[in-house]
Amino acid sequence: MRLRFNLVLGLLLAAIVIIAGVFAAWIAPYHPIIDADLMNSEMPPSWEHWMGTDGQGRDVFSRVLYGAQVSLTVGLVSQLINSCIGTALGVSAGYFGGWWDDLVNGLTNVMLAIPSLVFALAIMAVLGPGLPSLLIALGLTNWSWTCRIARSSTLSLKNQGFVQAAKVAGFGDGNIMRTQILPNIIGPVLVMATLGIGGAVLAEAALSFLGVGIRPPQPSWGNMLTDARELLRAAPWAAVFPGLAIFITVLGFNLLGDGMRDLLDPHMRTRRA
């Protein structure tokens, strides 16, 4: 029952964030960049500006909504890249073993040893700031845990009867990995991906905060925090609301991941005869 609750709350929070991002243009009362009203800067929340205004007089609410677009794109796309890399490497390493396994294992360990944020920073430094390079940087740096999970699940699956039976029936290795192994590890991989979305959102915020992520004036939760840093005393709302948005997103996707773990268990789908 508790897990169901997780799933519902997670879905709800994730849905709020997704709707906010997708319909930002319709919901937002102001333009996030152009509508800068220096006369009305650092205004506390009011009826005109639900979340107040920032140092340049821009509507924080509108900017949070548009920021959701960036954060969600970063979260979903980078996790998609991570999951694909991690699963492909992990499954093939576990299945074939041998030198390939050693290589993948070594690579995973190296990735785990370097703090992923530092690695992402290095990639950003080479590629330059902007959304595409952010997606690549975060997509290339966070696959090691997915890879480990995929590999260890594959190792335990590959000697099970049904995988052996598929070999004996003449199926090729690619086919076996796709039809026998992948469906059985997709649960943990998906859970890892969902949990990773929160991390990617935080990483985006951190990178933008450090000034290598999304370039201002384009709003992202991370660079909103950067901007609000100096006004923390004068206009705390400019930092609180993007922070809250990050919190809700991370919490939402984490709960979703938790709930999905339960839902993806095949035994939950029993059809009684």
Binding site: G161, F162, N184
Partner: peptide, 17 residues
């Protein structure tokens, strides 16, 4: 030519098919 019947009936069938 040859096929096999496995020992553990619980591990020998793919639970997702």
């Amino acid at each position: 030519i040859a096929q096999m019947v496995f020992q553990d009936p619980y591990a020998s069938l793919n639970p997702r098919q």
